Amino acid sequence: KLCLVCSDEASGCHYGVLTCGSCKVFFKRAVEGQHNYLCAGRNDCIIDKIRRKNCPACRYRKCLQAGMNLEARKTK
């Protein structure tokens, strides 16, 4: 099974979405830290295992598009 954000090996369902541990922690920190990420490109950066750290804005956008939600952990 692959992470729906970066296509690395998924470690489980986190915040409602099948993700790897790295994307799970990234999403939690992004939401709780209330980061205002900005993409230096055109908001279409490739997010994969190798390049997932290059653009936090696009990675966060991809987390949201996949359906990640901090509240999902509280309902399970």
Rank of each mutant, 00 (worst) to 15 (best):
C3K: 01
C3E: 01
C3R: 01
V5R: 02
V5K: 00
V5F: 00
V5P: 00
S7N: 06
S7D: 12
D8I: 02
E9V: 14
A10Q: 06
A10V: 03
S11A: 09
S11Q: 14
S11V: 12
S11T: 15
G12E: 08
C13L: 12
Y15W: 13
Y15G: 06
G16R: 03
G16E: 04
G16D: 07
G16Q: 04
V17I: 15
V17Q: 04
L18C: 06
L18A: 15
L18Y: 15
T19C: 15
T19S: 14
C20W: 01
G21R: 07
G21E: 15
G21P: 12
C23Y: 02
K24I: 04
F26W: 03
F27R: 02
K28H: 12
K28W: 06
K28A: 08
K28P: 04
R29D: 13
R29P: 02
R29E: 14
R29F: 05
R29T: 10
R29L: 11
A30C: 08
A30Q: 04
A30W: 05
V31P: 02
V31Y: 10
V31N: 06
E32Y: 06
E32K: 13
G33Q: 11
Q34V: 07
H35R: 09
H35G: 14
H35F: 13
N36V: 06
N36G: 08
Y37F: 13
L38K: 14
L38W: 06
L38V: 15
L38Q: 11
L38E: 13
C39G: 01
G41A: 11
G41Q: 09
R42A: 13
R42E: 13
N43W: 08
N43R: 09
D44H: 06
D44K: 08
D44N: 07
C45T: 00
I46W: 05
I46Y: 14
I46D: 12
I46P: 09
I47Y: 06
I47V: 13
I47P: 03
I47H: 04
I47K: 04
D48R: 03
D48H: 03
K49T: 12
K49R: 12
K49N: 08
I50M: 15
R52S: 06
R52L: 09
K53S: 12
K53Q: 13
K53C: 04
N54Q: 12
N54M: 08
N54Y: 13
C55W: 02
C55E: 01
A57I: 02
A57S: 11
A57Q: 04
A57V: 02
C58W: 00
C58S: 02
C58E: 02
C58A: 00
R59C: 03
Y60N: 03
K62C: 13
K62P: 01
C63D: 00
C63N: 02
L64I: 15
L64E: 13
L64S: 07
L64Q: 14
L64K: 11
Q65M: 08
Q65H: 15
A66H: 09
G67T: 03
M68F: 07
M68H: 02
N69L: 06
N69H: 14
N69D: 10
L70G: 08
A72H: 09
R73P: 12
K74G: 12
T75R: 11
K76F: 13
